[in-house]
Amino acid sequence: MNKQDTAKGSEPMVQIKNLSKWYGDFQVLYNINVQINEGDCVVICGPSGSGKSTLLRCVNGLEDFREGDVIVEGVSVKEVSHNRGIYKLRSKIGMVFQHFELYPHLTALQNITLAPRKVSKVPGQETEKIAMELLERVGIPEQARKHPGEMSGGQQQRVAIARALAMKPDILLFDEPTSALDPEMIRDVLEVMVNLAKEGITMLVVTHEMGFARAVADGIIFMDEGKIVEQGDVESFFKNPASERAKDFVDRVLVHI
């Protein structure tokens, strides 16, 4: 096979190379470089509007970008973004959204089984079994037959995590998964995420939950105005942030906690 395949074992799971993106004339991402190794959990933080979520959506090709590339498991997102390869790639990258984005007309169980049934063509009974196992894993098997509108935000987000896991992804993307939740529900969702991180699934998490970052993250990225300002080890980021902006940010979030 080709070179990339043979080198796969030693290469990072996700490589973001010199990525730049514009909305019209307005540049939202400046020359982003990130590497994420298999099994790592990397947290992206920074003020709102700094381009975190946009960066996340570039990884699974939900947004296109003008310069640079994203390599996921040896596959160039730029190359496959114009053919059916993108669908195959996305099915291996799970994503969890700020506002859950469950399909309102389907039950929790149907939300989880839709992609396995339609994309991987797994028979219905089997997907239901897997879905029930996933619901148990996120702690809400009793909600299986309910519609999203009948569940609390925390329950919906846990269904959304189960939905992301249903395709057995190699990577999970989290886009501010707790910022739309009431405080007492945040813990339930974080608990699920901590367990996933401990199980060794590769995760890229946009969040303001610094407690989560300190507990399980292998690395942290601080972004501001479309640029990566700092990148590295979690503890040293909190103890002595190098830049003024990061210092400000850390002061503010730590006061909050």
Partner: peptide, 21 residues
Amino acid sequence: FAGLSTGLSQLQLYRHVIIPY
């Protein structure tokens, strides 16, 4: 986004997510 992120194609997205809603 949610539909696409699980690997649904455009056609599947319309058929199973957008149109029923």
